[in-house]
């Protein structure tokens, strides 16, 4: 890994960190979902500051270029984040369905009560 790449990774991690911090401050993202992304920026800083980890790992996994290992790991990590988002969306859809049904049942009950009330 070249020194330039290390600098780019540090800058990228810093940018990612700033964006997440901004989103959190504005309340556009909950802390729960920010942890995954913060983890990514921390990992980037660690790798940029200490590329030795990647050299050892790439030898162990017999990957020729350590930088390819960095890309591979980032790709896998992003895949995992996407999967977790699909899970979160599915759970939200289920909650949304329950809420809509409960709302419709309540609305019908209210309408029925109003009808009885006006009939009296």
């Amino acid at each position: 890994m070249t020194v330039q790449l290390q600098v780019y990774m540090l800058l990228g991690a810093l940018a990612l960190f700033c964006v997440i911090f901004f989103l959190l401050k504005k309340g556009m993202m909950s802390v729960k979902y920010s942890l995954l992304w913060l983890g990514l920026s921390v990992a980037l800083v660690v790798v940029a500051a200490c590329p030795y980890i990647m050299y050892v790992l790439s030898v162990v996994l017999s990957i020729e270029m350590p930088v390819n290992l960095v890309f591979l790991l980032m790709f896998v990590y992003v895949l995992l984040v996407l999967l977790s988002l699909s899970v979160a969306i599915s759970q939200l859809a289920e909650k949304c369905r329950r809420l809509a049904q409960a709302n419709a049942l309540l609305e019908q009950r209210l309408r029925e009560l109003e009808r009885q009330h006006s009939a009296e």
Partner: peptide
Amino acid sequence: PFLDLPVNLGIGGAVQSGYRYACR
């Protein structure tokens, strides 16, 4: 008599609300 779903849930979600009503 009708239930008015506030968002479109598809046939499954709609029928299930009916089952909930029947149950209650």
